[in-house]
């Protein structure tokens, strides 16, 4: 019978660190998804249908990818870096979309 793998250092952990970190991930993913939908709705309201469509599709793709990556998440798992980089990229892209909306509003 295979011995279950445990993470060293967490045996006496009274702070529930992995659970807190996972909750933090969930909050972040939820925030990014909602942020993307807000950008999408704002773009739709301002009649920038392409930005709206891209943002909506990005929200769906991001949610699916990150949730899939988070299934492989663990204190020593390689997926930690992938999902962190992906989420960071999503926020940067969102910032770019917001900037585009502001510029379009300003110039239009």
């Amino acid at each position: 019978m295979k011995t279950p793998v445990t993470t060293a250092g967490l045996e006496g952990d009274s702070g529930a660190q992995p659970q807190r970190t996972m909750l933090s991930w969930h909050r972040t993913v939820l925030s990014v998804t909602l942020g993307t939908l807000v950008v999408s709705l704002t773009a739709q309201r301002q009649e920038h249908s392409i930005i709206a469509a891209i943002a909506a599709l990005a929200a769906f793709a991001l949610l699916a990818t990150v949730l899939r990556s988070l299934r492989r998440w663990g204190p020593y798992a390689p997926a930690r870096w992938d999902v962190l980089r992906l989420t960071c990229g999503a926020v940067v892209v969102l910032g770019g979309m917001g900037l585009m909306l502001a510029m379009a509003n300003l110039l239009g």
């Binding site: 967490l10 020593y76 909306l101």
Partner: peptide
């Protein structure tokens, strides 16, 4: 590993701060 996880949560908190700025801008 607890310090490493705390570092990850700190990075996530900064990411959410950035996201708040973006949402505020929009």
């Amino acid at each position: 590993v607890r310090f490493s996880l705390a570092n990850e949560r700190t990075a996530l908190a900064w990411l959410r701060t950035g996201l708040t700025l973006v949402a505020g801008g929009v």
